[in-house]
Design a protein around this nucleic acid. Structure first.
Lengths: 205, 205
DNA sequence: AAAAATATCATCTTTTTGGATGATTGATTT
DNA sequence: AAATCAATCATCCAAAAAGATGATATTTTT
C-alpha cells in the first residue's frame, strides 16, 4: 500500500526538490503540488492525499490557517509543516493547528521518509532542530495581560512612555510599570531585545 | 560547449530541486553543491564552475560577503544570487557585490535556464519580481553600510552603546554615531521602531 | 583628480529608560 | 474568605539614548 503525498509551497525549487527526492521511492505516490492555499483547497475537493507537505508562508494565506481548514475538512489527512525557520512559536502554532509533524527545508532524504513513515503510523514527527527548539524552555513566549499587550504594541511602534501614558489615559509611572513588567516577563535587557522577540513571535497581536 | 554549474545553499531541498531541474539539460553540467561559504571556497580551490547559484543566507557567512570573495578570487565565475525574499536592499547588495543576476526560489525552469544563458552571454539577469522591486523608487528599506549592519545586528540583540563599542573595538561616540545614522536612515524615532522594521525586513543579515 | 561616502572620534544637553521599592484598589481564582 | 493577579500610582536615581554639531582620515565612486 503506497502513500499519496501532495505539497503546498510557493517555491518551485522546493517542490521540485521534494518531488525529486521522493520519486524513486516505490511506496510513495506523488499526487502533485499547489503554490497557494486556495488552489490547495481546490485540489483537495477532488483528491485527498495521505500526507501534505505544507509551507508555513504562502502568498494568499498563512500555512497555519490553511492547516486548520484542511484538518477540519479532511481529518484523515496528515500534515507536515515545512519552513526555513526554526522558530519555536511557529512550530507550536502549526502543531496546535493540527499538523502531525514539522520539517525544516534543509531536511535530508532520510528525514523526509522518516517523517512520512511516522505520521502514517499515527505518530508525531519533529525534525531534530524543531525538537530541540521546543525543548528550550528559556525561549517560551511569556503570558502577558491584555493591558501589557496594548503597551507592547505601542512600544513596538516607537512610542515613548509619556506618549503611551497619554494614549492610554494612564500616568507616566504606570506606563513605565507596564514597560518594566514586559521587560521582566520577556527576560529582555532593554526595548531592543524586547521588540525583537515580540516581533518574531508576534506577541502584541 | 556545456556550462558547469555549482550551488551554495543550506537547504537540501533547494539543492535537490535545482539539480533535478537542470539534470536533463544536455548543455549543463552539474558540478555539485556546498552547504556553507567555507566549503564553497574549498571546492573552488579545486574546480571553478562557470556559474554559481548562491543563497543569500548561509550558516557561516552571508552570501553577500561570499560573493565578494568569489568575484575577487575568480573573476570569471558568474554568480546568480538566490533567495526567498524579494527585498530591494538584498538585491542591490548582491548585485553590487559582483553578482551577475538574482533569482527567487520560486523561479521556474525557464527562468533558471534563461538566467544561466544570460550570464554566460555576459548579460545581467534579474527575475521579474526583482526587477519590479528595484524599480520601486520608494526605498522601503534603506541601504546601510557593512558596519551599520553589524551595529544594527548588535542593537537588535539588545546590546547597548558601551557594549557595542567594546565588541567592535570602537569608541562609544562612534558606536553612538552608527546608532544615530541607523535611526536616520530608517526614519525611526527610537530603537523600538528601528528594531521592528529591521526584524521585519531582516535588514541585519 | 575631485567628489562623495564611510568610519572614526569629540563635546554638550535634554529626554528617556530602566532598576529598586512600595502601595492601593478591584477583579478573579482557589 | 483568602490568596493571587491586574492595573493603577508614587519616588528616587543612575545609565543610556538621542539631538545638535563638528571634525578627520580613509575608501570608493565619479
Amino acid at each position: 500500500m503506497s502513500t499519496n503525498v501532495f505539497i503546498v509551497d510557493d517555491h518551485f525549487m522546493v517542490i521540485e526538490g521534494i518531488r525529486s527526492i521522493l520519486q524513486d521511492e516505490e511506496n510513495i505516490n506523488w499526487l502533485g503540488h499547489a503554490v497557494n492555499a486556495s488552489s490547495c483547497l481546490e485540489f483537495l475537493e477532488k483528491y485527498q492525499p495521505n500526507v501534505i507537505f505544507m509551507d508555513i508562508s504562502l502568498p494568499d494565506e498563512s500555512g497555519i490557517d490553511l492547516c486548520k481548514k484542511v484538518v477540519k475538512l479532511y481529518p484523515k489527512i496528515k500534515i507536515l509543516g515545512l519552513s526555513t525557520y526554526n522558530q519555536q512559536s511557529i512550530i507550536q502554532d502549526i502543531m496546535k493547528s493540527g499538523a502531525s509533524g514539522y520539517l525544516l527545508k534543509n531536511a535530508s532524504k532520510e528525514e523526509l521518509l522518516d517523517a512520512i513513515e511516522a505520521v502514517m503510523a499515527d505518530e508525531e514527527y519533529l525534525c531534530f532542530e524543531a525538537e530541540e527548539s521546543l525543548q528550550n524552555t528559556e525561549n517560551l513566549v511569556p503570558i502577558i495581560t491584555k493591558r501589557e499587550k496594548e503597551v507592547l504594541g505601542l512600544i513596538c511602534e516607537g512610542f515613548t512612555n509619556p506618549e503611551i501614558a497619554e494614549k492610554l489615559f494612564i500616568s507616566l509611572p504606570t506606563a513605565n510599570t507596564h514597560r518594566k513588567s514586559l521587560l521582566a516577563k520577556f527576560g529582555a535587557k532593554n526595548v531592543a531585545s524586547l521588540v525583537k522577540t515580540a516581533v518574531e513571535n508576534k506577541s502584541f497581536l
